[in-house]
């Protein structure tokens, strides 16, 4: 029993003043960025990972889990502010805020940037293998009205919101629809398409590279990794529109090391630091002047540079409970 107590005590980290506890996605924080911050501020950085936004929210709601920094997506950020779960740290007044691209200043999830700084952003659309899929691929009809040689070789993300958003765009129905008739059409479309879908799987890279799937819904970062291994893979910005997302750096209420946390938020808005994030995670950041520090091949990659005629990414807030109930119903029926 005593040995157990000693083990428990030694296994828990020491909470010194000079610590910073980051709670984020796995392998999302560049080690060199951490090393640089540690050297500059004399602070030891500890990183823990979550698997979903819901886990993170549940832990914060259960009463400050002891983290100093979290990295919520746009819709989650809005919820955290609405539920008073993040510290108001006046990011707009921080010295490095001048570097934030205008595009990312007045955002729906934090209109005055009082709570959060940009970390990275990307999009959810689809990728095709141009060696197999010929002709015009700029429409979602590649997925929803596929050519015969594509049927049975389609992969969709295993995420009800992403799949349904995409179907809604194809049908010209607005996101978060609360109209049951519209959602019935969404279900019909997806049920028809299901016969041609090989799998609903979020690990899309291996499927595309092996040729198992020739069309796949994809995050832009995954598509870029896939293209590295198979040059005929192309990421498509469909003309019907696509989803954008941004992860943000914020400080949960009651963070034990508030000053270190603020220092980190300011730190990641410096162009050379933001560039490290992009180089490591392969997603765009929202910081002006970071281009100069990004690997040239990456800076020019089509996956993070939409063509001029592509529509702008659509950022989607959390749907209302009514709309969410309909989405749940469509997905349950589709998967039955």
């Amino acid at each position: 029993m005593r040995a157990l107590a000693i083990l428990l005590l030694t296994a828990a980290p020491a909470f010194a003043e000079g610590d910073l506890f980051i709670y984020t996605w796995g392998e999302y924080t560049p080690p060199d960025l951490v090393a640089k911050f540690e050297a500059e501020f004399g602070v030891k950085v500890h990183i823990d990972s979550y698997d979903s936004m819901e886990t993170m929210i549940a832990k914060l709601r259960a009463g400050g889990a002891g983290y100093d920094i979290i990295v919520p997506g746009d819709a989650t950020m809005q919820v955290l502010i609405a539920e008073d779960m993040v510290e108001k740290i006046d990011v707009f007044a921080m010295p490095n805020y001048v570097n934030v691209d205008d595009k990312w200043r007045e955002v729906y999830w934090d209109p005055k940037r009082e709570y959060s700084a940009p970390w990275a952003w990307g999009s959810t659309a689809f990728a095709v293998d141009t060696a197999v899929v010929k002709g015009d691929t700029s429409s979602l009809s590649v997925l929803f009205a596929p050519a015969d040689d594509v049927k049975g070789r389609i992969n969709m993300l295993r995420d009800m919101n992403d799949v349904i958003n995409m179907a809604e765009r194809y049908l010209g129905i607005p996101r978060c629809s609360e109209n049951p008739d519209e959602m019935k059409r969404v279900l019909e479309l997806l049920e028809t398409q299901k016969a041609w879908v090989k799998s609903y799987d979020s690990e899309t890279k291996e499927l595309m590279v092996s040729g198992e799937a020739v069309v796949s819904m994809s995050w832009n970062g995954y598509a870029m990794r896939a293209r590295d291994e198979k040059p005929t893979i192309a990421y498509v910005y469909p003309r019907e529109g696509y989803t954008g997302w941004m992860d943000n750096v914020a400080v949960p209420k009651g963070a034990p090391h508030l000053d270190n946390a603020k220092a980190w938020v300011n730190f990641v808005m410096a162009p050379e630091n933001a560039a490290m994030i992009t180089n490591y995670a392969r997603y765009s950041n929202g910081i002006k002047g970071s281009e100069a520090f990004i690997e040239p091949a990456l800076a020019a990659a089509p996956e993070i540079n939409p063509p001029a005629d592509a529509p702008a990414p659509e950022f989607i807030p959390t749907c209302s409970p009514e709309a969410t109930a309909l989405i749940d119903k469509v997905w349950t029926k589709l998967m039955n």
Binding site: W25, G26, S49, S202, G221
Partner: peptide
């Protein structure tokens, strides 16, 4: 490992 799925 589960949290790495996000980035591949």
């Amino acid at each position: 490992i589960y949290s790495m799925l996000r980035l591949g």
